[in-house]
Design a protein around this nucleic acid. Structure first.
Lengths: 175, 175
DNA sequence: GTCTATAGTTTGATAGAC
DNA sequence: GTCTATCAAACTATAGAC
């Protein structure tokens, strides 16, 4: 609490005029980093376009939100275990719902012939891990447009893309 | 310390017969999770085979080590800031070296015509984030062979693979 | 090499003046 | 809404018996 207070220029005790406990601060941060993506980012999945186009939009807004709230994202990960069971469950529920929606758009892309992965849920987990990993090393002076372009390529044209058949998959050739 | 002691069936004070401080325990864990990969896993990059084959081997040993030492990996991430500056720097150096070696094998793959990414370092970071993300959700009963096969596919045949040029499905067609 | 007891410090939170 | 002063609990670590 003293560290948080320092960073906003007041004393530790003064924080209790704004929050009733440390857990409430951590919950507010964790909620912001899970509810906002669910209630705002997922809207792009309902707009017009192919699954690949809609997922591209989601990667865009997801990475930009993460770039702006990098520290909050790391805190919500690290301090998840410090939340009450009830609060932790709500945060986990938001994360799971977001994951399911990513899985669903990947599944739609498979049905539409745009994507070529076997298991939409596994692919969704990989895609989210790849994006969220950015928060560990991103710096303030990083070119976010370039970041988004690179990761859209890695995800939409890389992980999810149809394999061209020459090597067809993971060990099928040799196995 | 009491929690650590509980998990090995002794009292907190007894831990000091084996380690002189909590920091020493955390450093031992962090060192294990960074030095072992550098000194053992990277050997597969020096064996025979194309860059893609050697990277495939690295993904294999990396994910298996991570599956066996999942908790230690999470601890070494979470408690990195609890280390002394000297210890933290040594751990970070191991991580950076590992990252550079992954970058180099990707660069070799590009030169050999096996891979088609623009920036080997960015690709290496993405590949490592993707693999390390597994430790957040992996369970003990998970099929590791299937995990390895899936991630080799995502990485070697997905992220790093040559794009076919048509950009098959990521928006160029309609845009 | 384990234990109990406890020292010394830090932490989250409260009380009350301004 | 901020501050100083302070509390109670928890923490890392030590001392000394067995």
């Amino acid at each position: 609490m003293r560290g948080i207070a320092d960073s906003v220029g007041i004393k530790g005790a003064s924080l209790y005029n704004h929050f009733s406990s440390k857990e409430e601060i951590l919950y507010a941060i964790a909620l912001k980093m899970t509810r906002v993506p669910v209630e705002e980012h997922l809207l792009v999945l309902d707009e017009a376009g192919t699954p690949a186009e809609r997922l591209t939009s989601l990667v865009d807004v997801h990475l930009r939100h993460l770039a702006v709230n990098r520290v909050e994202h790391l805190v919500s990960l690290r301090e998840l275990s410090a939340l009450t069971e009830e609060h932790r469950e709500r945060v986990v529920e938001y994360r799971k719902y977001y994951q399911r929606r990513v899985r669903d758009v990947i599944a739609a892309g498979i049905r539409a012939g745009e994507f070529g992965v076997d298991d939409p849920l596994r692919a969704a987990v990989a895609v989210l891990d790849l994006m969220n990993g950015v928060s560990w090393w991103l710096r303030d002076d990083y070119d976010i447009d370039a970041l988004v372009a690179t990761y859209v390529d890695f995800i939409v044209d890389g992980i999810l893309r149809h394999r061209s058949g020459v090597r067809g998959g993971a060990g099928e050739v040799t196995g």
